[in-house]
Computed example of a mutant assay.
Amino acid sequence: MKIVHIHHHYWPVVGGLENVVKALAEEQVKLGHEVHVITSTYGAEDRPRKEVINGVHVHRIKATRLMGYPDLTYPLEHPDVLKDADVVHGHSQNSLFTMKILEHAKKQGVKTAIHFMAVDALNDHPNLVVKLLGSKYSSTMTRRAIKEFDIYMARSLRDKELLMNRYGVRYVHYVPDGVNDELLNMEYLGDWFRKSRNITSDYVLYIGRLHPLKGINYLIRAMKIVSNEIKDSSLIIIGPGDQRPYIDLANRLGIRDKVLFLGYVNDREKIGALDASTALVLPSICNYVEVYSMVISEAWARQKPVIATAVGGIPYRVKNMENGILVPPKDTKALATAIITLLTNKELARKLGARGRENVNSWNQIAKEVLKLYEK
């Protein structure tokens, strides 16, 4: 089968959806299929326009970007690879790039699939302009995708529910993200991580972008409460972004020695950090930034519980006191209480993490499921 994936970014651009497209495409190559990716040159200006990466044929085309928003990337050309494809699989109806390429493929009579994400997720965005204009754009693109394309997939149960109940779509296939087999099978790396970073205290872990909507300031404030209760405790923060406002906050609260910023780390160190942690904490404050949250799957793959706010797709996956703990967004005291609960009850943390692992799929399983949908 000849499969073409579409998204406005691809490797070397690193991000949640970028990683998903790369993992799915490469897994389909392993299953014996001819796989192509159409993407823009944004973020990869130093790479060839055409190249093969781990068996995936990458086509980078000229595009323009409106107002600097990645989702408003507009393609300026269409590769010939679309003509004889068996299926063209677009990722995110919010991506103008994805939608325009899919529409072009549809006009040529090619079977099209759209992977929905962040359906109506801007309705609680704190920026009023983004909330109003972004929500209108998002709902328009969702309706357009429903009208135009052949196969509907949703990355989260939240999106599937909205598509069926709000937009009246009868058949939406829930196809979540998977994890690499390496993450499921790699040996325990917690001791190695602690030794390499000279860490002796119990800690909770944040992994993700350093962005205001991720609620990191609430997490740091919660750690002030935690440190008053448990002296030998700390917070480790992994991810790209500007650390300065959060370092300043930790200094003002007098807990700078309790918060360790590691920035971007490689996969081995991330796994080690998860292994040595008590729990993963996701304190996000709005729906838009938590569509599926791949890092939840990564934590569960290493049998770690998740403490998270009830936003976006999180409450569809994290079940309170079953595989993690749910707290309201922006609630510093509730967040601190949840952290203290798991730091002081390691047996509960172990049980919640073990139950979480039962909800994790490998990329091999996901790729096979997607191929069945193509063939239907």
Rank of each mutant, 00 (worst) to 15 (best):
L352S: 04
L183V: 12
Y203M: 09
V295I: 14
A85Y: 04
V281L: 12
M186W: 08
E182A: 12
D267K: 14
G241P: 05
A349V: 05
M99T: 08
A299Y: 11
S293D: 07
D191Q: 13
G215Y: 10
C286I: 02
C286P: 03
E369D: 09
L205K: 12
R166G: 02
E358P: 05
Q243M: 13
I146C: 00
N345F: 09
M153E: 04
D80N: 12
D150K: 08
T73N: 00
K2N: 11
S297L: 14
Q365A: 04
N345E: 08
N359G: 08
R60V: 05
N165G: 07
T332R: 02
A222Y: 00
G16Y: 04
G109R: 04
D159I: 03
M321R: 15
D46A: 11
N19S: 15
P70C: 03
L76W: 07
M153H: 01
D275C: 10
N251E: 12
P212L: 09
G168Y: 01
V306M: 13
M223D: 03
V311M: 11
R166Q: 13
G16F: 09
A308H: 08
P315M: 04
Y10R: 00
Y206M: 08
I38V: 15
K319Y: 12
E148Q: 13
I3A: 05
T344E: 14
A25M: 02
V88G: 01
A279M: 09
A113E: 05
R170W: 03
V81Y: 03
S196F: 03
G68P: 05
K333H: 12
L253Y: 01
T39E: 05
V370G: 00
A23R: 15
G55F: 06
L66H: 10
G263C: 02
Q93P: 02
K50M: 10
P305D: 11
K22A: 13
Y292L: 15
A250S: 15
V360E: 00
A250R: 06
S95P: 05
S227D: 08
R302Y: 13
I238L: 15
A154D: 02
I6N: 03
T278I: 15
G313T: 08
I238K: 00
R221W: 00
I3N: 03
W11Y: 15
F261H: 00
K2L: 07
I220A: 02
R350W: 11
A222H: 02
Y374W: 11
L282R: 09
K50P: 04
G190Q: 07
G90V: 01
E229A: 11
T332L: 05
V360S: 06
R158A: 00
